[in-house]
Computed example of a mutant assay.
Amino acid sequence: MSIDYSKYNIRELEDILDNIDGEKFPDRKRDAEIALSELLKHSTTLDDKPGVGKRLMGMVLSIVLAIFCVYILFVAVVDQQILMRRDFISYSRWPVTFWLLVVFWSVCLLVSISWGRKLYRSGNVK
Rank of each mutant, 00 (worst) to 15 (best):
Lys41Met: 11
His42Asn: 15
Glu33His: 03
Gly53Trp: 04
Asp79Met: 11
Pro50Ala: 04
Asp79Ile: 00
Gly58Ala: 07
Arg55Thr: 05
Ser37Lys: 15
Asp47Gly: 03
Ala76Glu: 02
Val64Asp: 09
Gln80Glu: 12
Gln81Ser: 10
Phe74Tyr: 14
Met84Ile: 13
Met59Ala: 09
Leu40Ala: 08
Glu33Ser: 09
Cys69His: 00
Ile67Asn: 07
Ser37His: 13
Cys69Gln: 05
Leu65Thr: 02
Cys69Pro: 01
Glu33Cys: 07
Phe74Lys: 13
Asp79Ser: 14
Cys69Lys: 01
Pro50His: 04
His42Ile: 05
Val52Ala: 13
Asp47Ser: 13
Val52Cys: 04
Ser43His: 08
Val75Ser: 10
Leu65Gly: 06
Val60Asp: 06
Ser62Asn: 02
Ala76Gln: 02
Ile34Trp: 12
Phe74Ser: 15
Cys69Met: 07
Val52Asp: 03
Asp48Val: 02
Ile63Met: 12
Leu61Asp: 11
Ile82Glu: 00
Leu36Glu: 04
Met57Phe: 12
Ile67Gln: 05
Leu56Thr: 15
Val52Met: 10
Val78Asp: 08
Thr45Ser: 15
Leu61His: 13
Leu40Ser: 12
Ile67Gly: 04
Pro50Asp: 06
Phe74Pro: 01
Leu83Gln: 15
Leu36Asp: 06
Asp48Trp: 01
Ile72Cys: 10
Gly58Leu: 06
Phe74His: 08
Val75Met: 13
Gln80Thr: 10
Val78Phe: 04
Leu46Gln: 07
Gly53Ala: 04
Ile34Phe: 13
Ala35Lys: 08
Val77Trp: 08
Leu46Ser: 14
Asp47Trp: 09
Leu36Thr: 09
Leu65Ser: 11
Leu83Ala: 14
Asp47Arg: 12
Ile82Cys: 01
Leu46Pro: 01
Ile67Pro: 01
Leu46Phe: 07
Ser62Pro: 00
Ile72Met: 12
Val64Arg: 09
Met59Ile: 15
Pro50Gly: 04
Thr44Pro: 03
Glu33Asn: 12
Asp47Thr: 10
Asp47His: 07
Ile63Phe: 03
Ala66Ser: 12
Tyr71Pro: 02
Val60His: 10
Cys69Thr: 06
Gly58Cys: 05
Met84Trp: 11
Lys41Ile: 00
Gly51Ser: 10
Lys41Val: 04
Thr44Val: 10
Val64Tyr: 00
Leu73Asp: 07
Leu65Trp: 05
Val60Met: 10
Ser43Val: 07
Met57Arg: 15
Val77Met: 12
Lys54Gly: 08
Ile82Ser: 02
Leu61Arg: 11
Gln81Val: 01
Val77Asp: 07
Ile63Val: 05
Gly58Lys: 05
Thr45Asp: 14
Lys41Tyr: 00
Lys54Pro: 00
Leu39Thr: 10
Gln80Ala: 09
Arg55Met: 11
Asp48Gln: 11
Glu38Met: 13
His42Gln: 13
Lys54Gln: 09
Lys49Ser: 03
Ala66Thr: 04
Ser37Cys: 10
Val52Gly: 01
Gly53Arg: 14
Ile63Arg: 01
Phe74Ile: 08
Asp48Arg: 03
Pro50Ile: 12
Ile82Leu: 04
Val64Met: 10
Val77Pro: 05
Glu38Phe: 07
Leu83His: 14
Ser62Asp: 02
Lys49Leu: 03
Asp48Thr: 09
Val52Thr: 13
Val75Gln: 13
Leu39Gln: 11
Val70Ile: 15
Val70Thr: 12
Ile82Lys: 08
Cys69Asn: 06
Leu73Trp: 03
Leu73Tyr: 03
